[in-house]
Amino acid sequence: MMMAPQRASSAGAERPAGAHGPRAAVAAVEVRDAAVRLGGQTIWRELRLTVARGEFVALLGANGAGKSTLLKALLGLLPVASGQIRVLGRAAGEANRAIGYLPQRRTFDPSTRLRGVDIVQLGLDGDRWGLPLPLRWGRLGERTRSDREQVWRAVEMVGAGPYARRPIGELSGGEQQRLLIAQALVRRPGLLLLDEPLDSLDLPNQAAVAALVAKICRERDVAVLLVAHDVNPLLPYLDRVAYLAAGRAVEGTVQEVINSATLSALYGVPIEVLRASDGRLVVVGQPEAPAHHHDRHLLADGAGDRHAD
């Protein structure tokens, strides 16, 4: 099992929610020989993946390789056909309260009349039934106050303070993405699952959000599994990568995985990895897997009655 490098633990108040029990022994994510089938098609099989506590791992691969599918399997939203998935020491789907999940590509309608801070607040109490009583004293008032502090801590953590009170629909893509990361972060999760958070951001914003996720990973001691198309903005921060292709995966450090030999073996066709003078990696010759179109439609009811379009 991969162990996380020792990190300086932040102030004691910031214990991750999932960090009870013998934490060093239990990985944040442990996938053993798992397979997922969707609509009669095997997306991947014999998949192995380990993310240790506090580790920052990127999940790479072409379109349709099943990266988002893996995140949904980790959340228990899709069943595994074989093998086993453990998340924070529990079965997939049972640890969701301790997971911060950022779904793929969400933008808000420009007319959405809620503030950024309200969107973050929903990450904290959006699954509580009933209404909070607007009390300012007593036990309930205490809860309202501590909720508000927790929301603003998450907002400050992502640096969204200056615009968190503006309507979410009026914010730029980068600003919305930071607030959505704050939403995933607000319950102090032990694991963050981020599905393409850099997608459709411009280059400076990609670099800034990558640095932000790395900072959260270090300061909050939270494990991060981040789905990305392009590994380059993440290179300075990653502990390890997992590369998903042709229904299988390899994991290891960036050097171990993203090289011509490993990727050629994974894809079964010759792949060339070039390194630019500034350290950026370019992967040449990877075949695009057939797109499944499952990724975005299957979330609402898990089982999914809509097969491949």
């Binding site: 999940y101 969400r106 808000f108 929903l122 959006g126 039934w129 209404l131 939403q183 609402a300």
Partner: peptide, 16 residues
């Protein structure tokens, strides 16, 4: 609150 969450952010609400 669940209705508000599901209205503005249905993917995240479903994951919860």
């Amino acid at each position: 609150r669940p209705l508000l969450f599901a209205s503005v952010d249905s993917d995240a609400a479903a994951a919860r």
